[in-house]
Structure formats: structure tokens, C-alpha cells
Design a protein around this nucleic acid. Structure first.
Lengths: 257, 257
DNA sequence: CGCAGAGTTGATACCAGTCAACAAAAGTGG
DNA sequence: CCACTTTTGTTGACTGGTATCAACTCTGCG
């Protein structure tokens, strides 16, 4: 009974916690905004009760009412193409904006699904743009955050043009590691929030190929995998594999003997 | 001599032609902006002398001073990855914004190269955002155009996740046809502004595979190709190939007999 | 006319997709 | 708490599509 009360109190405190005290302040929209302006932004941000794994923030065809930022947990955005194939457009960690896909015509092209339970900030888009019009610093920051989202798209495309499955997988792990570092989590030891199938549909590979790729990376001593738990044991080698084409034929044959 | 004078006069007229008379008005930034606001935007737009094939609008590392819109012709954006591989991020036809890749941190990640001689409008970015802050309609339109650029990125990724080379090629031709239709050119007969190698690096394929793919599409009666000249002879079939997985094995074998 | 760049076509090897069986982990209900 | 089911992940065998290397043809251009 006492515990319950404590828990509820904590939740209320957490709910009242505004952008000024959020641990993501340096990554999220508030970055680079003055204290006074921050209050203006803080007013329009809605903090939602935790969403459960599998919950959706929006679906294809929904009008773009808000953009979202997870304060913890992880999301995936999925688009279903005309032939029924599900493609994963992106994984979204804490502090990364979700929902910009509707910017073009005002309607979402994909759905955002929680991979874990997560706390989400919701920012009504109409409010955001009208406040941004009055605060140049917020307008700049909004464009910057949109640009970062664009950069992640470009990173994804740089993965997808690679022809070797191992390169794609190495790039994926490398990029994820970077992003965990950015949000203050461990970059060398983390638990993947997504399944092998999700990874496969993100990388444009068969799920068996992803599984084999993980195994091979482990055999080469680059990572250690236990299901979704990943440790990067040779960061330098992972970087090399991510950025340079695979080992030269001579080395390859040598390994096969 | 007379001809030269005429030509120069025409050029001057063309140079003075503002957004209000541009044939791209309905596609470009001005779309949906009132006449009064249009004049404000028109003031900051610089019209540049024609650029030649191979000229660059910006290079990696350049600060984002402007965004660009071609009024005719075509561009490609290219990023060189750490291992020296050149990847093509996009092809840009008339009316499609170029230069948003620097939105994230203010510096370009890629270079924009003219595929043909082209006339370009240059919009200094600082001016654009400051005018946008005062004109809600321009702010909305700016976000919409950014969103459309984002959508083209998503389309590109939807091509790249496809595993069959023929699907990628069909999707590429289908998307290009759509875009030619949008800018008022023929959607069924056009001259590709880019080489087979450019297409290959855009699709994540070997150039020989692109060449073979074109040949096969021609053999199947879907298109007719003469070098860079392309006619779409069976639009319905092209759409089908672009959106649905390749023909079932039975049909495939039948063709091979 | 000859040259260089662009595009096509052929032969071969190999990587990754597919089908299938199995193992491990995570729920589920008694 | 344990047996059961379901989901998720791993591994193996085989096939096919695509990259690669190489020769050749075509096109435009000085």
C-alpha cells in the first residue's frame, strides 16, 4: 500500500517534469533554446502515459496531428507496400523525432509501433509551427531536427546500397552503437529492441542471413551475441568492416583452408 | 549580329522573369502562396546563368548557403563514402529542391552535379527562413517541400530494399515516368539524363545488371530502349512489375521454353 | 576517319534466398 | 512451479540471381 502511493507520487512528479529537466534536453527540440523560449515550448508539449509494446502512435492514412519523441524505449516505423510486403523504414531511440513522414501531404505514409514500453512526448504540429514562427531559435532547431532525421534516412540508404550482407550488418550495428552513445547509453553493450526479422526487413535481407551474419561476426571475434544482447568486442574491426569493402580474396581463401 | 542581339534580349527577359510567370509555379516553393507574399519571395530568389553539364552547385563540406531549384535540366547528388565508393543519392528534375542534405548540421554531405545544361534558381537559406517566419503560408510550403524531398528519399529506400534487380529497375523507370508527368513532360517517352553507371550506383546494382535489365524489359515488350531514349510501351505491365513481386515460377519457365 | 566513352553481351563463380529441421526462449494455463 | 504451446532464433543443404571479368559493339565527336 505504501509502495503504491510512492509509485503514484513518482509518476506525478515525472509527468510534471518539463523539458527543462528532461535528460534529453541536449538532443531533443529544446536544444539551443533559451530559458524563456523553453517555457513557451514546454507549454504545448503533452506527456503521455507509457505506451505498451506493440502500441501504435499513428497508422498509414492518419492526418499528421503531432510529432512524437520517445523519452525512453524504442519504436519502429513500418510501411506496407502495395504487394503486402512490410518494410521497416527506421528504428527510433530516445530523443529521435517520429512522425515527419507526413510532412509532404499531411497524411502518414507509415505506422509507428512501440518495440518496448515507452514514455512519449507528443507535440501538436500546428502549435509547434506557430510557436516556431515567433521564435527564430525554435524554427532553426526544428529545421535542424528535421535535417537530422533526413541524415538518418541517408545513412539507411548508404546501408541499403551495399551489396554484401556482412557490410550491411556491420554498418547497422555501428550506427546503432553510435546512437546509443549519443543518448548516453553504453555503445559497446546493449540489448537490441527489435527482432531478427525486423532487422532483416530494415536491411533488405532474409532473416536467416541476418542470423548467419551475427554468428559470423561472433566467430570473427568482433561481437558477442546472446539472443538480443550484443557486446562489441572489437570496435576498431567493426568500424573497418562498416566503412571498407570486405577483406581481400587472399585473406578470404586463407580463412577457408 | 542581329541574332546575337535577339538572343541577349531574350536572355534578359528570361532573367527578369519572376516566380509569378515561371512554369514551375505550381510545383516549386511558390505553390499555394498569395500574390503579395509571392513578391516577397521573388525578391530573394537569385536566377543564375545556365550551368553546364558537370558543373557543381556545392561540394561536400560546403556550408549551406542556399537551396536550389532547377527550372529545367537535371542534377544528381553524389556522396563519396569513406572507402571511395560513389553513391548516387538522388536525381533532381525541374522543380525539385536541391541542397537539403545540409539541414542537419549546416554543411553539405554530398555534391550536386549537373547532368545537363540547366537553369537554376538559388534561394539564400537565411533569407528564406527569415521570410518564412513572417509568412505562415511560406513556412507551411517550405515544410511541405521538405516533406516531398523526404518522400523521394523514402521511395528510393523502397527501391533499394527490393532484392530482385528487375523490380528495382521497373520501380526506377516507373518513378521517373511519374515525375516527368508531374513536370508536364511526356511520361511515356523521355531521354534519360544519366548514364547506366549512374543508374547502377543509384539502384545499388552493377552497371551490367542495369543494362541487362533494360534489355530484358525490352524483350518482354514493356519498354523500347535506344541508348538513353526510353519509350514505355506497356505502362500497365510496368506498374505491375514495379509494385508486385516477379511473375510466378510457372510463367517464368513457360517463357524460357 | 579514328578515337574514347558508353553500352551490350557472354561465361563463370559465389553470395544470399529459400525450404526445412531444429534449438532456445518466452509466454500460458493448470 | 512445471508441462505445454508459441514465438524467436540458429543451422544445414541446395538453388538461383547477380557480380565480376572480359570481349565486343555502338555512338558521338574532334
Amino acid at each position: 500500500m505504501y509502495q503504491m502511493t510512492t509509485s503514484v507520487t513518482l509518476d506525478l512528479v515525472r509527468l510534471r517534469q518539463g523539458c527543462a529537466h528532461c535528460s534529453l534536453q541536449q538532443l531533443c527540440l529544446p536544444a539551443g533554446i533559451g530559458a524563456g523560449d523553453l517555457a513557451r515550448l514546454d507549454e504545448i508539449v503533452r506527456r503521455r502515459r507509457p505506451v505498451e509494446r506493440g502500441d501504435r502512435l499513428f497508422r498509414p492514412g492518419d492526418p499528421m496531428s503531432s510529432v512524437y519523441v520517445a523519452r525512453d524505449g524504442a519504436f519502429k516505423t513500418v510501411s506496407v507496400s502495395e504487394d503486402g510486403e512490410e518494410q521497416i523504414l527506421g528504428f527510433h531511440l530516445a530523443g529521435e523525432l517520429i512522425g515527419l513522414d507526413a510532412l509532404g501531404d499531411g497524411f502518414h505514409r507509415c505506422e509507428a509501433i512501440a518495440l518496448t514500453t515507452a514514455n512519449v512526448c507528443e507535440v501538436p504540429f500546428a502549435d509547434l509551427t506557430s510557436v516556431a514562427a515567433q521564435l527564430p531559435s525554435l524554427q532553426n532547431q526544428l529545421l535542424r531536427v528535421i535535417g537530422q532525421s533526413l541524415n538518418r534516412d541517408t545513412d539507411h540508404r548508404e546501408i541499403l546500397v551495399r551489396r554484401q550482407a556482412n557490410e550491411r550488418i556491420a554498418l547497422f550495428l555501428h550506427g546503432l552503437s553510435e546512437r546509443y552513445r549519443l543518448i548516453g547509453s553504453s555503445a559497446l553493450s546493449f540489448k537490441l529492441p527489435m527482432s531478427r526479422e525486423d532487422i532483416a526487413r530494415f536491411l533488405g535481407l532474409a532473416l536467416e542471413t541476418v542470423s548467419r551474419g551475427f554468428t559470423r561476426l561472433q566467430e570473427e571475434g568482433v561481437i558477442a551475441v546472446h539472443g538480443r544482447q550484443v557486446e562489441i568486442t572489437n570496435e576498431v574491426e567493426l568500424d573497418r568492416m562498416a566503412h571498407f569493402a570486405e577483406v581481400e580474396p587472399a585473406t578470404r581463401q586463407a580463412r577457408r583452408i
